[in-house]
Design a protein around this nucleic acid. Sequence first.
DNA 1: GTCTATATACCGATAGAC
DNA 2: GTCTATCGGTATATAGAC
Lengths: 229, 229
Amino acid sequence: MLTFQNFKKRTAPTLESVCRDLIRENKERISVKKEEVAVRNMTRILEAVFALNREKGFGAMSLRDLSRRSGLSMGALYSCFPGKEELRSMILRRGAAYTREVILDQAPACATPAERLETAIETHLYLSESLRPWFYFAYMEASSLPRRERRRAKEDELATEQIFLDILLEGVAGGSFHCADVELTAALIKAVLQDWYLKRWKYKRKGITVEGYARFVVEFVLSRLTGNA
Amino acid sequence: MLTFQNFKKRTAPTLESVCRDLIRENKERISVKKEEVAVRNMTRILEAVFALNREKGFGAMSLRDLSRRSGLSMGALYSCFPGKEELRSMILRRGAAYTREVILDQAPACATPAERLETAIETHLYLSESLRPWFYFAYMEASSLPRRERRRAKEDELATEQIFLDILLEGVAGGSFHCADVELTAALIKAVLQDWYLKRWKYKRKGITVEGYARFVVEFVLSRLTGNA
DNA sequence: GTCTATATACCGATAGAC
DNA sequence: GTCTATCGGTATATAGAC
């Protein structure tokens, strides 16, 4: 079992570190040239974006709201990103890429399908817990994209689901899993993992920790896959 | 097993019929006095709202967008609802009330817990399938509400979950279900049901019908509850 | 690199003709 | 009941001082 502490120690997914990747990825579209300045400002910007996204949604958020909340002037904002729509695209693109990197970096090939499934579930939950506002933003804003980008967002979602599907298929092929519909099972796992960061208020109210939730999901799914018939 | 056809025949959840309830519920806040006119216009308004909600989100939708899409002028819009925020509130309030009415109206008390659980899952899925854009809207907009209304939206969500929780508790008490954590199991069911209307593009692509999805969810959950250990 | 001031377009909401 | 015209205010984005 992977603990949340060990995950954080190994992967260290802080807002600032992902912001740094975002800055480097979009260097030519950002007029601020000193990386340290850009990272510091972008971190404050994203903190404000995510807070305002929770309160009123990105579409209803104005750049004046963002300026006030982040403490940066309108001019400073525009020196860090080229426009509101582009800011959203940058955030979504980097988030999807980072998720893919982390999830693919985790599963040791030598483990059994059951162990791999457990690790994949834990990793996904711990990552979304570490960057919960980012994940929440990505989920809520993915459908408000221009056609071309929305298409890619859907492919990103299917790619994550595919990771679970592959593990299920291996387990079924090797005889350790029994499952009539692996595709729907993979979709179910994905939906349950997303509920953790979409409805955190609910689990917080119930007093559930992320490790407790992980244990529940792993046990629920594995008992279905390895149980009778 | 409840079929989608039988559900629709018995409950008949059309956009127009729910709009009629919405009009009656908010009669004093709507200046159009002929009910037939108000229902016809409100139906067109909600069709446009839901379409624009999918494309850009309610917050980013302007009333001019809405006017263009619905074919009604700005003045006609304001004769059907008192303002943009109030329109959102009216939609969310009626949707939550209607869902509660339909779900509570369905479970025959004589059935076993397993049958009641099956019926509750099917009813929820069939209702969200019939009014999918409404459910999608309610999910996406519930978090962008003023404090007081958001609080009630959360209670509505918990009330639906409570229906599943009650069935699980009865089953456990009667010995027909085995379940270590009924609260998390109820939350899991809810999350999986929501995924159906939130990610329909995914299931459509896979060729899954609402009845196929219902069968999968019922089988998955029941096998866990009535299986070993 | 960060600020204030401003250009231009559009917002939600309303008044008054028909 | 529905329309067009228009109100005051605010939106995104930019220009130019420092």
